[in-house]
Write a protein that binds this DNA or RNA. Sequence first.
DNA 1: GCAATAGTGTCTATCAGACATTATTTA
DNA 2: TAAATAATGTCTGATAGACACTATTGC
Lengths: 243, 243
Amino acid sequence: MSEDNWSPPAVLLAVDLVILTLRSSRLQVLLVERGVDPYRGALALPGGFLNNAAEDIEAAANRELREEADLDGTQLHLEQLRTYGAPERDPRGRIVSVAYLAIAPGLPEPVAGSDAAEASWRSADDALSGVIELAFDHRRILADGVERARAKLEHTALATAFCGSTFTISELQQVYEAVWGVALDPRNFYRKLQGVEGFIVPAGTDRRVTKGRPARLFRAGPRTVLHPPMVRPDTCENGGEHG
Amino acid sequence: MSEDNWSPPAVLLAVDLVILTLRSSRLQVLLVERGVDPYRGALALPGGFLNNAAEDIEAAANRELREEADLDGTQLHLEQLRTYGAPERDPRGRIVSVAYLAIAPGLPEPVAGSDAAEASWRSADDALSGVIELAFDHRRILADGVERARAKLEHTALATAFCGSTFTISELQQVYEAVWGVALDPRNFYRKLQGVEGFIVPAGTDRRVTKGRPARLFRAGPRTVLHPPMVRPDTCENGGEHG
DNA sequence: GCAATAGTGTCTATCAGACATTATTTA
DNA sequence: TAAATAATGTCTGATAGACACTATTGC
């Protein structure tokens, strides 16, 4: 089965980042314009190769987050998503990419002139539907990232990662509505949220003033796993309905 | 930031398999005894390097499934679990491993003399608790695999992958009980299962004869996503953690 | 005052959890 | 007959979904 002088093949390892945020109540993803072939000029997920053979993969993800998006990985949610390694996924050769999912609070457009000058926030829906074309298999990676975020909103407190350190309940509702792509009843949402102990905790007596009555401010609570979960409304998916 | 003659470092890519099954109503995992250094003689997850630079990663997982476990990947559930790439995880050098999770129906002990002669089913609990020591970071990989299986039982039809082509409702209940490590009420379980349309469908008029009244046989239905989900009983968990 | 948003209450269908009962087999 | 397991039924507390109402701001 194995020859005497067989030795395992080496591959190039890259990381790609699905960085999601909420801007103007829409789910957006950070994309960069490629400056080199292949796919020069096309949009792609931020990412790059390991710096050296000793660099940890998650450290590489944090480094790309800083270099390409000007974001601090210690301040936002970052988790490994999945590894993509089809032999033909990159025309340059055998490149295996470990994708990471990052969730950031709403941020301004990356500043021109910075390291992240080529990066810009784009509509996640446009990228998913193909209105915006992505290089390589990045559309698939994005789809997996968005689906991961959707699923984790249900049973973890991930939604707070889309918000600043303090937020109102309606801001949190906008996160759920934008990521899930559904409309939620504010009153039921309010009641449900208050019922899950430790999900959100009051943040002092400050209020957020906009147009109507000022809203109370909260911050993320100690609970990360939601019990019972938030329920995503039936979007008549999959094999059917229910009994 | 990048030197002119910089080139990305290469790494060795391996796959590791978390193969779970149910034997005697216990969750078990397939482990192999290592015949070579490092960790010679210790138990480890089945796995190995890519055969060549053109081999697809999932194909490599299927190949290892066949070579090391004598299992046919097309007949059982196989999904990518996670990638492990800490620089020091393997004393031989920089080896990045893509772990896969496989779920198999209850099977006999691998036959001595076959390619899988070194493999044997072991208690998943023993391996998780440290009673059985595993090589490398394989205990962590196993823990992630078991947790993935536990979570997926809740909102997918994965449980049927632990059973043969036909099964009884109580057999399916044993899957949930063994993987979750809880006791479930047979009557509520029965009612719940029948209520989720498309999860399981009757398989003819045959019955499974054991001791008491013969049980109806079912097979997996078309539905893969459970709506509403099966609910894992409160095991007074959480305060904070995440992966 | 009006418009707008925040926050609370109430009803109801559904469902999970507890537990009783009947049915069908082997020994 | 008893023992064992399968299958069905009933009650109850919790809750998701629908929707009406009150509260507090800016204009």
